[in-house]
Design a protein around this nucleic acid. Structure first.
Lengths: 251, 251
DNA sequence: CGCGAGTTTGAGGTCGCTCAACAATGGTGG
DNA sequence: CCACCATTGTTGAGCGACCTCAAACTCGCG
């Protein structure tokens, strides 16, 4: 994903500022990296939490534990995401954030980032962008959970992972496989399904030779059919992109 | 809801700024009010859209129309909400925004608000707060859609409406009834259910004398049992508030 | 080798959906 | 004023997607 497509929806007059802010933020976080093990608790829900994070390596998620044992995974973070940007404004987050794999993550005290945020419009814009981007993903996922069947949700999720990993430069543009450090139970918690049902959906996708998942590696065997599956759930912008690609292929 | 509980989660050093920003924004929007009829299209998805809105009267919602006819309502707006704050940063929104009832809504060109936003930290903070608050509601609703049964979702939604209307001063603090200008179909589109099933859930709530809905008016007959129903889906902050109230009642 | 975590499969149950019909309501035009 | 119609709400019968419970299998690891 190029810078221009990453910020595709943004007001053009802000894009320069976003790119600049990205660099400045990378600089500000420089040197604060820490290693975390898989399943570490980064943020405990409803506790004072003064840090903002910048993801370098690995995956993490925001997850709500219901009092009766159910879990809902709300957002997944991967490299190049900032998260807990909201720490600059709120004292506590209502949910936990946990690593899904071993991670390398930078962090900064919110006061330090907020100082930069006040002094430098580029930094501020880049922070806002992160929040807006998160909200966009949440909108999409509300649609997925509210209207999508199990297969549609799985297809949508895999496409989202794929696009984000390409956008972050974790895998090459043309790659059709990637590592996904989630158990089927964790997938299920995100998808609002049971692990057993996720397993069955994945089996069907494998049998139909659309996607094969083995030992944490996702291999997309038929990108076009995968996108067909998810199509009804995609937002207008993504749907237009999809239409354009299909036209290109058919030309 | 008092100012302090409205901004309960926020960093205390920012609360003064939020209150001030609220006033300044109210001033800036002053005089721009327009009337809309129920079911008007305020924002058409994926079209250039240069306005930010401030809700004065009535309800509206952000809704995604899937290509096969399904609809998912993503967020509901009511008095005192700002919306499309993101217009300051993005050119187009991927979804439609429609009025649910007759409305009185103020609006401002994004450039005018963005000027204020840059010049006045209070205005900026108030805008950020709106985005963060929306994201909080989206988190909660992802949990509702992902893990909630039909009754739990309905209970959660009604409690949310009730709390927000009280917070906005539309109904008095102690009120147990309010007007809800949604058809069962629209409720269903938000809840990710069919209208038929919503109807059955509402019937059960009526028979159990928990909530009665007639002609657009919601009457909460047993607040405590309604909250019990929704309890598993509430976030930690709300759950703590609920626990405190119960303790107060039992003391 | 035995253990635990994760995956896979089977059998049966249930929540919410589909399809169909009918009742209440309110607006419209004759 | 009433007949008509569209919209919304209500109810029944049957079905299917997804869940529950239970068990076996794989694989890395101590």
């Amino acid at each position: 994903m190029t810078e221009s497509s990453r910020y595709a929806l943004h007001r053009p007059e802000l894009i320069g500022s976003l790119v600049a802010g990205d660099l400045k933020i990378a600089n500000a976080f420089q040197g604060s990296a820490r290693r975390y093990r898989a399943h570490d608790l980064l943020i405990e829900g409803d506790c004072d939490h003064p840090y903002v994070y910048r993801f370098v390596e690995g995956w993490a998620c925001r997850v709500r534990a219901l009092p009766d044992g159910r879990d809902q995974c709300i957002l997944i973070f991967m490299p190049s995401d900032l998260f807990a940007v909201k720490s600059m404004f709120v004292e506590r987050h209502p949910d936990d954030v946990r690593t899904l794999s071993d991670c390398l993550i930078e962090r900064l005290h919110y006061r330090d980032l907020h100082k930069l945020y006040r002094e430098d419009t580029d930094v501020a814009n880049r922070c806002i962008w992160q929040v807006i981007e998160e909200e966009r993903r949440l909108h999409n996922w509300v649609v997925g959970l509210g209207q999508g069947s199990a297969d549609e949700r799985v297809a949508m999720l895999l496409l989202d992972f794929h696009a984000r990993l390409r956008g972050a430069g974790v895998i090459p543009e043309e790659a059709l496989k990637f590592l996904m450090p989630l158990t089927q139970q964790q997938l299920a918690d995100f998808l609002g399904l049971t692990a057993i049902h996720v397993n069955r959906v994945l089996r069907v996708l494998r049998e139909r030779e659309i996607v094969a998942i083995r030992e944490g590696e996702v291999r997309i065997l038929d990108f076009e059919r995968l996108r067909q599956l998810a199509l009804p759930l995609l937002d207008l912008h993504e749907r237009k992109l999809a239409a354009r690609t299909v036209r290109m292929v058919h030309d």
